[in-house]
């Protein structure tokens, strides 16, 4: 009975705020990388990314008077970047994390920020320093099915996060890949699966493109928008052999978000599970 109550409380905790699930899941995957895949000797990198993200967020909290609970968002950004971004110099990492967090406060339109913070931070580090990179192969494909089922299953079962964007993106991407890889080029299904069971792609699918603050407000717009990201990512990867194509595709699509929101108004998102009738909170 005790166990059951503890379990019930854990579920309630996870449902109270979608970010709780995200933090746990991302931290779990980081641990998996360190323990099972041997990403040891990378602790300083994680510390810099997460530490910078939290510090910069704290500064803005003081400055803008935002709720301290918004540190959870910064933690997610830091964790997500730890899983994706690599760099030769600690300054590059700090720059990436700082750009990511400050963009939330400085690059805004119509009451919300435009760019997905982690996405922009990675892009800035790669573009501006020439010292950063993303290693799409670092996950291997072994445990990726677990990731897929865990992330999707968790979101569905706990009813947290915007899984519609994940499904629209991954579904479209998988379909395009199927058409090209298997039906057009004639590779076997194993090639198709191997292309999809990529840690960076799945991480992007469930923890980056799902960010409710930087996706269109209306559900219909959101789904078309996600499909657009998938199409662009697909084209970049096949036409130009760009390895982290979804990252660049999302960056471009975030930029056109304000236009979409202008035409399709929807309810603004709020992180915590309070009744939807209340005025939207500032949720940086």
């Amino acid at each position: 009975m005790l166990l059951q109550r503890a379990f019930g409380r854990a579920i309630a905790f996870l449902q109270r705020d979608a970010r709780h699930f995200q933090v746990l899941f991302l931290a779990g995957f980081l641990l998996y990388g360190i323990l099972a895949l041997g990403w040891d000797a990378e602790w300083p990198r994680y510390a810099i990314l997460i530490g910078t993200a939290l510090s910069v967020q704290s500064l803005f909290i003081r400055w803008k008077g935002v709720a301290w609970s918004s540190l959870k968002s910064a933690l997610i950004t830091g964790l997500g970047m730890s899983l994706l971004l690599k760099a030769g110099s600690p300054w590059t990492l700090a720059l990436g994390a700082a750009v990511a967090i400050s963009s939330k406060f400085l690059v805004r339109w119509d009451g919300k920020h435009i760019f997905n913070p982690g996405n922009l931070g990675i892009a800035a580090a790669v573009l501006f320093t020439g010292d950063a990179w993303v290693s799409p192969g670092q996950w291997g494909s072994g445990a990726m099915l677990v990731f897929l089922v865990g992330a999707a299953g968790g979101m569905v079962v706990l009813r947290v996060g915007r899984i519609d964007t994940s499904i629209a993106f991954l579904g479209t991407f998988a379909l395009l890949e199927l058409l090209r890889t298997v039906l057009y080029l004639g590779w076997g299904m194993d090639v198709w699966l191997h292309r999809l069971m990529n840690g960076s792609l799945l991480l992007f699918t469930f923890f980056m493109i799902t960010d409710p603050m930087t996706t269109p407000r209306s559900q219909a717009a959101r789904i078309y928008w996600s499909m657009g990201v998938a199409l662009l990512a697909f084209m970049l990867s096949w036409k130009y052999w760009i390895n982290a194509a979804p990252i660049w595709a999302l960056l471009i699509f975030c930029a056109i978000n304000p236009v979409l929101d202008h035409f399709r108004k929807g309810a603004a998102f709020q992180w915590t599970a309070t009744p939807p009738t209340i005025t939207p909170l500032r949720t940086n």
Binding site: I11, A36, G142, A143, V146, V149, G150, V157, L158
Partner: peptide
């Protein structure tokens, strides 16, 4: 490297579903 997260993940998922 792949078995333990697989087992753990599956177990958690089943528990959640049952709950």
């Amino acid at each position: 490297g792949t078995q333990w997260p697989l087992a753990l993940g599956t177990l958690l998922f089943v528990l959640l579903l049952l709950y």
